[in-house]
Computed example of a mutant assay.
Amino acid sequence: MSKKGHIYRLFPGGNTSIGFYSYYNYVIDLKKAKRVYLIKGGPGVGKSQLMKNVGKVLVDKGYDAEFHHCSADPDSIDAVVFPQLQIALIDGTAPHVIDPKYPGAVDEIINLGEFWDENALKQNREEIIKSIDENGKIYKRVYSYLGAAKLVKDDVERIYKEVLLSSRLNNEFKRFKEEYFTDIKGTKKDSIQRHLFGSAYTHKGHINYGNTYLSYGNKTFFIKGSSLLIKSDLLNELSYHYIEKGYDITFYHHPLIPDKIESIVIPELDTAITTLIDVSDNKIINTDDYFNRELLLSYKDQTDESNSIFNMLMEIVYENLKRTKINHDFIESFYVPNIYFDKVDMLREKLLEKILGS
């Protein structure tokens, strides 16, 4: 391969209104995978850096790579997948504990815990336990405030639903589907669906990497509008057409309400449809155009109040996620000086040899 591979940046898990929510089972299809390396070990042992380094080498050699980012810290990697090789490296530690499903045949455990000075870590036992437990308490606070934010969002969504001119929206959406789906032929296979997060609530705010996984040029379409639920419903309706025709589809879910959708991607058609802003100018529809403006205006004080409270709650979420990051860095400070990173580097080289020789 002569040119570099493409890096897709994704989120397999998220901080949501119902707690930490995982789509890690969709990182790679274990029945199709050639090899999955489950990386175990505590904070600061180099799991993320190991995956990043392996990923960089293979991307430089021309292989595409999916970098699955951590919702707690988007600078950290929880998994890296090489679709052309059907190989993945996955962090198998909490909160996304993963155990081998097909030991030896597909899965292989890599234990970086073998490369730390256990006696030195025991000397900081009390501080480590206290800090890890404290992070658990902070995350409970995060999820409580996300739950409250969802309730406030529900209040606004109730108003959007009431003022929606459903028949007008449905007619316009029907016109688009008739125009767009006419030339899409069916396949002779069953559709396979994959689920991930399209964005994440992190200590750096609400982050998405849509510009990496929605990179389909003129075949990226945009649904605009204020209502999360209305846009998600339209994406759901569009997805049925692709599924019926047998196309594989990836659903990218919303971090506040994980069963709602931000984007869908149909790789076989080089097509993506998203609700994320600043990704595409190919607007399908603006759902706000189908609101009863006079009725919506009568609710302005209520929607303004609810949106203000929602933003306030989210600021508290981000501040607490910053606390988890500071606390995590403190925990890592006990581990990093006591890790034999030269041995981790040697393991990385052996791992690369195995992957490239597979």
Score class of each variant (00 low, 15 high):
E332F: 00
K219F: 04
N307Q: 13
G19Y: 02
M1F: 12
I90Y: 08
E178W: 02
G5D: 15
N282Q: 14
E172H: 04
L296D: 06
D107S: 04
L30C: 03
S232L: 02
F222C: 07
D289S: 13
R141E: 15
N236Q: 12
T287H: 06
G113S: 06
Y160N: 13
M312P: 00
K52Q: 14
Y335F: 15
P255V: 09
G225D: 06
V152M: 05
G92E: 06
Q86D: 14
I339H: 07
L347W: 04
T16M: 06
Y23S: 14
L234G: 03
K61M: 12
E114I: 01
F334L: 04
C70E: 14
E157H: 00
V106W: 02
E172I: 02
H96S: 08
L295V: 07
Y213P: 11
K185H: 09
I331S: 05
D60G: 05
L165F: 00
Y340E: 15
V279F: 02
E319Q: 14
K260G: 00
I7N: 09
S199A: 15
E319N: 15
G62C: 06
S2F: 07
D281V: 06
F221K: 05
L313E: 13
S306R: 02
N135L: 05
S131G: 02
E332M: 06
K40R: 14
I249S: 12
K219P: 02
E268I: 00
R9V: 00
Y216H: 15
K300S: 14
D270F: 05
I285H: 04
L356R: 11
D154C: 01
K300M: 10
Q84H: 02
T202M: 10
V59T: 09
S199Y: 01
G113K: 02
K122Q: 12
T93K: 09
N170P: 00
E305V: 01
E237L: 10
L58A: 08
L234V: 01
H6D: 14
K189H: 08
L165Y: 01
D345S: 13
H253K: 08
H241A: 13
A72T: 10
S17K: 03
T275N: 08
Y145K: 09
F82H: 09
G186N: 14
E305M: 09
K185G: 07
G147A: 12
N15R: 05
F20M: 10
I109M: 10
F341H: 08
A72F: 12
K350P: 00
Y24I: 09
R293Q: 14
D183R: 14
I266W: 04
I249A: 11
T202E: 13
Q86V: 00
R323K: 15
D133G: 00
P95S: 09
R35P: 00
F291M: 12
I138Q: 05
K31H: 03
D155C: 03
V279W: 06
G46E: 13
F197E: 14
E178T: 05
G205C: 06
N320G: 07
I316M: 11
K224L: 11
K322N: 15
T275A: 12
G14W: 02
F181S: 13
G113R: 00
L169W: 00
E349C: 01
